[in-house]
Design a protein around this nucleic acid. Structure first.
Lengths: 87, 87
DNA sequence: ATAGTATTTAGATATTTGTCTAAATATACA
DNA sequence: TGTATATTTAGACAAATATCTAAATACTAT
């Protein structure tokens, strides 16, 4: 849970998630979308991976990244508690 | 939006939110629930306030903190986009 | 006014984070 | 095998963060 909020606490990483919502992408394709170095994006992808918000799959020379929405459910469940006030 | 994720990215602050879900509390009451100094908690409360996740109201000598769930809706809306894949 | 309580603000410090360049690893292909 | 491409790992550094103690502010009540 901690990892998830940590992963979401960065505009670049949130933007990566929004990109992946539209289609799976390779690390290189993602890098092209930003003005940040490859290694930095790689690091962001690593944090997203640790949070299990994305899944990485190797295909030959490339690594394809895709969304994993099951964690999104967990966050929403956690958030929902606040909509039902009182213990 | 950035402020919200920043505010949520700390276990102490998330715990404060969970406490406030049960009932409104003064800063002092919140401090008692943790082993962290008053000033540190005050700082956490400030970040939660900036994110509009809590509301502070002065009552005489005390400041009462309470949840503001409207921001929770915004986060959930943002998260929901990921549940409907494809552009 | 003075003293006491509640809370925040200021300033310091250690840790974490985002970024970079350079180097390492892995795959493809001629 | 050797070279090009894709991506990550390593190491450095500046900026942001969580925490602390000491001091300031605000209110209560004697």
């Amino acid at each position: 849970m901690n990892n998830v909020f940590k992963a979401l606490n960065d505009p670049t990483r949130r933007e990566i998630l929004e990109l992946l919502r539209k289609k799976d992408m390779t690390a290189g394709e993602i890098v092209e979308k930003f003005r940040i170095s490859g290694p930095s994006i790689s690091h962001h992808l690593d944090l997203l991976k640790q949070a299990k918000l994305v899944i990485a799959e190797k295909e030959g020379q490339f690594i394809y990244y895709s969304l994993n929405t099951t964690v999104v459910d967990e966050i929403m469940t956690w958030l929902l508690q606040f909509k039902s006030k009182k213990k």
